[in-house]
Each structure stands twice: as structure tokens, then as C-alpha cells.
């Protein structure tokens, strides 16, 4: 009887082993989970800060202005003894907590401008998702202060944003194109913040070359190259400022937007 039992057990185990072996012999493919920045309610401050640092240096392009301290306050270093941004943010505007102040400066940058600087900052809430905005705030708070951003802030912001779509599967996740993909060159210039450095048709700053007659100096090809690779050619007299123009515009614009912008500028003769 035991021989029979053993045989039965052997057959059952053998069949199971065979099927398992075959399934393990074939190439193993796991399904893919889209890597969108989804910050649920139970997100930890560390996760927010880590995500925020990426946005700050990457898609947000913040160090372009805030890393120098000339066009905008340097956020990561001490400013006149008040400490980095996390330490000083709560004292900037009366009645506004650090969190509120930082959100305001991203959502409505012209509402409060630090003395000595121009109101040149673009509205970041138009370019970044609520998750990205709140993670940047968490990152900034972590610079010398305490992080009090929670998953609730993200969830609330998401409900307020009209057209906050469910995670779209596939496609390129994160970071919206400038001006919601609009190919209107004026909207692109506005959203990209070109006038923070350049002057065009009487508007904007004079840090970088005036673009009003740029079409006379450069052809479309040259303008396109300059936008995509700012280091490729430096205008005469601006050699010292080489490297200031962000290299990220090429990746932040769609091909159609870039083309529209180039043609628009080339037309400025």
C-alpha cells in the first residue's frame, strides 16, 4: 500500500514540477507599471523631498535662475544671514506660513517679489502637475526647515485642478509641454520665460541679447541650434554669460512648438 501511496505522491509532485519547470524555462517577462509621479495619501516626507529634488533640478529648471542669485534669490544657500529657503520662507510675508508662501510663489509669482528682483518668474503651476508642485515645496522646506507637506495637500490640489486626468497609460509621463502644447509663439515665449533675460519688442530684460532684430543676425537654422544647444554659439559681448541660458528648452518643447518659435524669431528682422 505504501508503494502505491508513494507512486501517487511521486506522480502528483512530478507533474507539478514539470509544469513549474517549463514555465520557468521560458523567458520571464513582468508587466510594467507606469512610472508616473503618483503620490498617494500615505506618501512620506522623504519621498516628497526626493521627488521634489528631481523636479527642481530637472523638469522644473529652477536652478537656471535660482541657482545663481543674480536674477533670482539663490534658494539653496544662505541669504544675508537668514539661512537657506527652508529657514527664511516663513518670514517673507506676514501672516503666511512657509508652505503657503512657497505655494503662492509658484502659483502666483508676481504677488510678492523679493526686493531687488524683477517679477520675471513664470507661473509654475501651469507647467507642473500638482504632485510636482508639492514635491518641490517639500524639497524647498527641507532646505533648512521642516517639511510639513503631506499627501493631503497633493490630493486637494489635484481636485482643484480642472481636467486633472487619471494617469494616462503609455505616452510620456510627467511634465506638460509649455503652454499646454500651444504653438502660438507669444504664448511659448511667455511660458518659457524668455523675457526674463531677453528683450523682445520692447519687453523684457537686458541680461541677454535683445531679440527684437534677431532674424537679421541669425537665420532659422542658427536660432534653432542656439535654442537646442545654447553653448554652440555665443553672441559678441556676452561671452561672460555663456552657460547661463538653460539647455533644457529643447526637451521641454514639442517639435511643433520649437518650429513655431524659431520661425517667429527668424521673422524679427
Amino acid at each position: 500500500m505504501w508503494a502505491t501511496n508513494l507512486k501517487v505522491v511521486g506522480i502528483v509532485l512530478g507533474t507539478l514540477a514539470l509544469y513549474t519547470l517549463i514555465a520557468n524555462k521560458i523567458p520571464q517577462v513582468q508587466s510594467e507599471v507606469p512610472q508616473t509621479l503618483t503620490l498617494g495619501a500615505n506618501v512620506t516626507p522623504e519621498q516628497l523631498v526626493a521627488a521634489g529634488e528631481k523636479v527642481f533640478n530637472g523638469i522644473g529648471g529652477c536652478p537656471t535662475c535660482h541657482g545663481l542669485g543674480t536674477r533670482a534669490p539663490n534658494l539653496l544657500t544662505d541669504e544675508k544671514g537668514t539661512g537657506p529657503i527652508g529657514a527664511r520662507c516663513g518670514k517673507r510675508e506676514a501672516g503666511k506660513s512657509c508652505k503657503q508662501y512657497l505655494y503662492e510663489s509658484l502659483d502666483n509669482p508676481t504677488a510678492f517679489v523679493v526686493t531687488g528682483y524683477q517679477p520675471i518668474m513664470p507661473v509654475m503651476t501651469r507647467q507642473l502637475s500638482p504632485e510636482q508642485i508639492w514635491s518641490v515645496i517639500a524639497f524647498l522646506e527641507s532646505q533648512g526647515g521642516t517639511v510639513d507637506v503631506t499627501g493631503d495637500d497633493v490630493a486637494k490640489a489635484k481636485q482643484l485642478t480642472p481636467g486633472a486626468s487619471p494617469a494616462n497609460s503609455g505616452g510620456s509621463p510627467g511634465g506638460g509641454a509649455f503652454a499646454a502644447g500651444s504653438t502660438d509663439p507669444k504664448a511659448i515665449i511667455q511660458a518659457a520665460g524668455c523675457l526674463a533675460c531677453h528683450k523682445l519688442d520692447g519687453q523684457g530684460q537686458v541680461i541677454a541679447p535683445d531679440l527684437t532684430h534677431v532674424g537679421a543676425r541669425r537665420d532659422a537654422e542658427s536660432i534653432r541650434k542656439k535654442i537646442l544647444d545654447p553653448a554652440s554659439s555665443i553672441a559678441k559681448g556676452y561671452e561672460k554669460l555663456a552657460g547661463i541660458m538653460p539647455k533644457t528648452f529643447g526637451t521641454m518643447m514639442s517639435a511643433a512648438q520649437l518650429e513655431a518659435l524659431v520661425q517667429y524669431l527668424a521673422g524679427h528682422k
Binding site: 502528483v12 509532485l13 509544469y19 514555465a23 520571464q28 517577462v29 513582468q30 508587466s31 498617494g40
Partner: peptide, 24 residues
């Protein structure tokens, strides 16, 4: 959406081990 750490559907090899275990 499944936002747990188990969100990805496992490969067939892992699944087959689980199935064999359940059958057993």
C-alpha cells in the same frame, strides 16, 4: 489603480510556483 509594491503582474515563472503551491 494598484499603488502597492505588488502592482506589477509577476512573470510566469513566479506565477507557476504559486500555482503549484496552491495545487499542492
Amino acid at each position: 489603480q494598484d499603488t502597492s509594491k505588488y502592482a506589477a503582474t509577476p512573470a510566469l515563472g513566479y506565477a507557476s510556483k504559486m500555482i503549484s503551491l496552491c495545487v499542492l
